[in-house]
Simulated assay, not measured.
Amino acid sequence: MSEPRRDESPAAAVEAAVAGELRLLDPEVRRSPELADALLHPDFHEFGASGRHWDRAAIIDMLTTETETEAETAPVSVSRMRGVQLSADVVHLTFDTEDDGRRVHRSSLWRRADGRWLLYFHQGTPFTV
């Protein structure tokens, strides 16, 4: 693992994680295994809103398949995005998404590796209003 960057403020670390999270919601990134791969930590895993556990390879495959079949849907709506830097190399984000009427609370851990912020862990929990 790389040395922590002492010159990066907590705000800059959170901004980098938010930018990565929003890129992962971009249909162009989701359609591209290469672009999605570049944002995921080698040890990435997720507990999805479906209850399924995903590893890195499975999530990349699902994202590519999902966007091929749902290319005409409206973009995912994101709200209440908040972040906090937990350590020099870890940022925690929480936010909500709405996609075709389905609402999900989301939590992500972004970890700096080799000077880049990568998604290490993600969890989604469906909710109703």
Rank of each mutant, 00 (worst) to 15 (best):
S2V: 07
E3I: 12
E3W: 03
P4V: 10
P4W: 02
R5W: 13
R6F: 09
D7Y: 08
S9P: 05
A11W: 02
A12E: 11
A13L: 09
V14R: 09
V14C: 10
E15R: 10
E15Q: 12
A16E: 02
A17Q: 05
V18P: 10
V18H: 12
E21N: 12
L22V: 09
L22C: 10
R23Y: 03
R23H: 04
L24Q: 12
L24C: 13
L25N: 03
L25Y: 10
L25R: 10
P27R: 11
E28C: 04
V29Q: 02
S32H: 02
L35Y: 00
A36I: 03
A36S: 12
D37K: 04
L39Q: 06
L39F: 01
L40E: 01
P42W: 10
F44K: 07
F44C: 06
G48T: 02
S50F: 01
G51E: 01
R52A: 14
R52S: 02
R52P: 00
H53K: 05
W54Y: 14
D55Q: 08
D55V: 04
R56W: 01
R56M: 06
R56H: 00
A57Y: 00
A57V: 00
A58K: 13
I59L: 13
I60C: 00
D61V: 08
L63R: 07
T64H: 14
T64L: 09
T64R: 15
E66Q: 12
T67R: 13
E68A: 13
T69K: 15
E70A: 14
E70N: 15
E70M: 11
E70G: 13
A71D: 01
T73C: 05
T73W: 06
A74T: 10
A74P: 00
S77E: 13
V78Q: 01
R80V: 02
M81I: 13
G83R: 02
V84K: 14
Q85M: 07
A88S: 11
D89N: 14
V91K: 11
V91T: 06
L93T: 03
L93P: 03
L93K: 07
F95G: 03
F95R: 07
D96P: 02
D96F: 11
T97G: 04
T97K: 11
T97N: 11
T97Q: 08
E98H: 11
D99P: 01
D99T: 12
G101R: 10
R102A: 10
R103C: 09
R103S: 09
R103T: 06
R103W: 06
R103Y: 05
V104G: 06
R106I: 00
S107M: 03
S108I: 01
L109E: 07
W110A: 11
W110L: 13
R111K: 10
R111G: 05
R112I: 03
R112G: 03
D114A: 08
W117T: 08
W117H: 07
L118C: 11
L119N: 10
Y120L: 12
Y120H: 12
H122E: 06
H122C: 01
Q123C: 07
Q123S: 12
Q123T: 09
G124F: 02
T128K: 15
T128Q: 15
T128H: 15
